[in-house]
């Protein structure tokens, strides 16, 4: 894999996208255990209904983890300096999570070169995360 460089990138460039298989109840059960987020709203239908939902919903942080994976497929994780996620809608069972991102700024600070990215996750219905990341590049 060729590493992207500061000079090779331009504002408006999109980074390689990532789309996941559809989120299943099994995915959420595994993520509940692996992540330590044991909130029953993600795995227990009875609890979800008592919270006013029709079904369990995916963890927002599961989609954020997929978004992070798109970034670390593109650059080494050590290049990632910040990663800010705003959860804008719920992800439902059966949804695919489509991750995308583009460069919105190039800047230099304290002798290092950075790009700022706008990032999104979308289900087939709606945007679920609006995020921003800052990445240092050679």
């Amino acid at each position: 894999m060729t590493q992207p460089t500061f000079n090779s990138l331009n504002v408006g460039d999109e980074i390689p996208a990532l789309t996941t298989p559809s989120v299943s109840r099994h995915t959420l059960a595994l993520y509940c255990g692996a992540s330590g987020d044991h909130n029953p709203i993600h795995v227990d239908l009875d609890f979800a209904k008592s919270s006013g939902l029709d079904d369990v919903i995916a963890h927002g942080m599961l989609s954020a983890a997929y978004l992070a994976q798109m970034l670390t497929n593109w650059v080494p994780q050590s290049a990632l300096r910040s990663f800010n996620n705003r959860f804008t809608a719920m992800t439902q069972i059966g949804d695919t999570v489509s991750c995308s991102g583009k460069i919105v700024e190039k800047f230099e600070k304290d002798g290092e070169k950075f790009v700022r990215l706008e990032l999104y996750t979308n289900t087939p219905e709606t945007q679920t995360i609006a995020a921003e990341a800052v990445v240092v590049l050679a």
């Binding site: 992540s35 330590g36 987020d37 044991h38 909130n39 029953p40 709203i41 609890f47 008592s50 919270s51 006013g52 963890h59 927002g60 942080m61 954020a64 990632l80 300096r81 910040s82 990663f83 800010n84 996620n85 705003r86 959860f87």
Partner: peptide, 30 residues
Amino acid sequence: EIDALDLVDFISVLGETLEKLLHGEENFNY
């Protein structure tokens, strides 16, 4: 963060219940 403090324990400090909770934002500096 949630290993260190289980969500249920965090929320009980606030006097709230888990049914009301959603995640709004999560911001990381590395």
